[in-house]
């Protein structure tokens, strides 16, 4: 019986130790909430979109240029 008590006491003691490991999950995880609240994330979205659309415009120009050359060579 005494042995059983000792064992359960040890079990509880060790269980309590493990709580600290779980407690770390309760801390809030830092996200860019400020940027979202102030609405300035939209600036980033617009900048990234402009860069992408600029590259697309460049690709379209290349595409047209190549099409033109293909026609010229075909007609030669």
């Amino acid at each position: 019986m005494n042995n059983f008590l000792k064992k359960t006491a040890l079990l509880f003691a060790l269980s309590i130790l493990s709580i600290s490991a779980f407690a770390q999950q309760d801390q809030p995880i830092e996200m860019a909430d400020g940027l979202y609240q102030s609405g300035k994330i939209y600036v980033v979205v617009v900048v990234a979109s402009i860069i992408f659309l600029g590259i697309v415009a460049y690709l379209i120009m290349l595409d047209r240029k190549i099409s033109k050359l293909e026609k010229e060579i075909k007609n030669k």
């Binding site: 999950q25 809030p28 995880i29 830092e30 996200m31 860019a32 994330i41 980033v44 979205v45 990234a48 979109s49 992408f52 659309l53 697309v56 595409d63």
Partner: peptide
């Protein structure tokens, strides 16, 4: 199909920044 590519990637730039993502330690945003 080129238009589809542009629309899809543009959508991912916009939604990728604005949609909610799961909060994970270390990874964050």
């Amino acid at each position: 199909w080129k238009i589809i590519a542009v629309v899809l990637v543009l959508y991912t730039i916009i939604a990728g920044f604005l949609f909610k993502v799961p909060a994970q330690p270390i990874l964050h945003e």
